Simulated assay, not measured.
Amino acid sequence: MLTFNVDWSGEFFAFFLLAVCAIAGAVLAVNFTKVVHTALSMAFTFVSLAGLFILLRAEFVAFVQVLLYVGAVTILMIFGIMMTKHQDEGKEAGRPLQETLAAIGCLCLFGILFYAIRSAGFPAPADPLPGDNTMAIGKELYTGYAIPFELVSVLLTVAFVGAVALAKREEAEES
């Protein structure tokens, strides 16, 4: 039923290493108590995911992953941490029953997903990827999706200005 036909190539080794790094970074982001450590482990996870996108031959998505998530989101999180008053609170006591049930639930979910993926039949792609998929995405983005692209940039600018205004207002109220 479960046969493992693994091609032990460099690509498989890189996939396995990047997948383990992404999972480890995500688990550490959930378990760290210091917010800066959480932000750094999230950046580590985002870089690992960018590596996985490169293995999938999606260089543009990997570039955007690094540019937006590793660069912008992580830096914004660190700025948010630095701009707010953060007091260290003691770590709450461990709950062994809840942790055990969570571990059992995670293992069950892993087993279900593993079985579903192994038994699924994935169809072959209809069209091969273009030789330069970054250029194809850029052409499509600036021709067919130019207006939504500009609207998203305006929305992000308004959100940034609103965040700065809220931070300034909270600062003025504290004084």
Rank of each mutant, 00 (worst) to 15 (best):
A62Y: 00
A62T: 03
V64K: 02
V66F: 04
L67N: 05
T74I: 01
T74H: 00
I75W: 06
I78L: 14
I78T: 01
G80S: 05
G80C: 00
I81F: 06
T84D: 14
D88M: 10
G90V: 13
G90H: 11
E92L: 06
A93M: 10
G94I: 08
G94H: 10
R95G: 10
L97M: 12
L101R: 08
A102Q: 08
A102H: 09
A103T: 09
C106K: 13
L107S: 08
L107Q: 01
C108K: 10
C108Q: 11
C108L: 15
C108R: 09
L109D: 07
G111A: 15
L113E: 00
Y115D: 05
R118L: 14
R118A: 14
S119W: 10
G121F: 09
G121V: 15
A124L: 14
A124F: 07
P125K: 04
P125L: 13
N133E: 15
N133M: 15
M135K: 14
M135E: 11
M135S: 13
M135Y: 15
G138M: 13
L141Q: 03
L141F: 15
Y142M: 07
G144Y: 09
Y145Q: 05
P148W: 06
P148Q: 01
L151E: 02
L151I: 15
V152S: 06
L155F: 14
L155W: 08
T157Y: 08
V158Y: 05
V164H: 02
A165G: 03
E173C: 11
E174H: 12
